[in-house]
Design a binder for these strands. Structure first.
Length: 227
DNA sequence: AACGTCCTCAACCGCGGCGTG
DNA sequence: GCACGCCGCGGTTGAGGACGT
């Protein structure tokens, strides 16, 4: 079908040098974000536009918050993932200064492992084991390090039902446990985070809104296990 | 000290959505 | 309606550092 955009001979790949970073920063400072396709040539970079975009968004942007995720951020990611599935860009949009790549990496390297060690399926946020007795309230931080406790505690009352589909955004459905348990503004169809959008971002968000509305009108949201 | 394994994260790849002609 | 090009997203990879033996 479509040719890959980065198969040109002579374009650099792999790690970015300081000089390349500086060229990209200088160019975007002067001209702003825009046509990524033509940016590398204009900026004097032997990179494909995609690579430049990624480097800027994930690493060079001035508003990026670097460093460890806080407990609150981690909780938020888990909750948002339960609602949105692997839609990292949407999840990252709720975490100021975090990028989708960063959130995705953190999920795969930390949170996913943590949930698995607790006997929770990270894909659908349900406990894998068959419950032995009605569950007490589950404390993530308390049970995270104890594999024994995951076998004996924190079980859901109904047996986990196999529902592997990614969970769709449920907006303003006050009857489900997700909304009940979240003290979040999850009105994803309207309230995107505040930073002023470029026209490109705006377009994107409009299309996301459309998508979310489609999702919204689809199937009923299953009960989730959310701490 | 040397080696092997695990973990993290920056970067790449392929695909789908959208706009345009 | 169709083909094409661009952009952005999510999955995956691989280099290199951390850690264990």
């Amino acid at each position: 079908m479509r040719k890959p955009c980065c198969d040109k001979e002579g374009t650099n790949k792999g790690a970015w040098s300081k000089q390349e970073d500086q060229k990209l920063i200088d160019y975007i400072r002067t001209h702003g974000e825009g046509c990524w396709r033509s940016l590398p040539k204009a900026a004097g970079l032997d990179r494909c536009g995609k690579s430049c975009r990624l480097r800027w968004i994930n690493y060079l942007r001035p508003d990026i918050k670097r460093g460890n995720f806080g407990q609150d951020e981690e909780d938020l990611i888990i909750k948002l993932h339960a609602l949105l599935g692997n839609r990292w860009s949407l999840i990252a949009g709720r975490l100021p200064g975090r990028t989708d790549n960063e959130v995705k990496n953190y999920w795969n390297s930390h949170i996913r492992r943590k949930l698995i060690s607790m006997g929770i399926d990270p894909n659908n946020h349900r406990l894998n084991q068959i419950p032995l007795r009605p569950p007490p309230k589950c404390d993530v931080s308390a049970s995270a390090t104890s594999s024994e406790s995951t076998n004996n505690e924190c079980k859901p009352s109904p047996p986990p039902q196999p529902q592997p589909q990614p969970l769709k955004p449920s907006v303003n459905k006050t009857t489900d446990r997700v909304s009940d348990s979240l003290d979040l503004n999850l009105d994803l169809t309207i309230a995107f985070p505040s930073p002023p959008a470029t026209s490109a971002e705006e377009k994107r968000r409009v299309s996301k809104t459309r998508m979310t509305k489609q999702v919204e009108s689809s199937e009923p949201v299953p009960t989730l296990l959310l701490f």
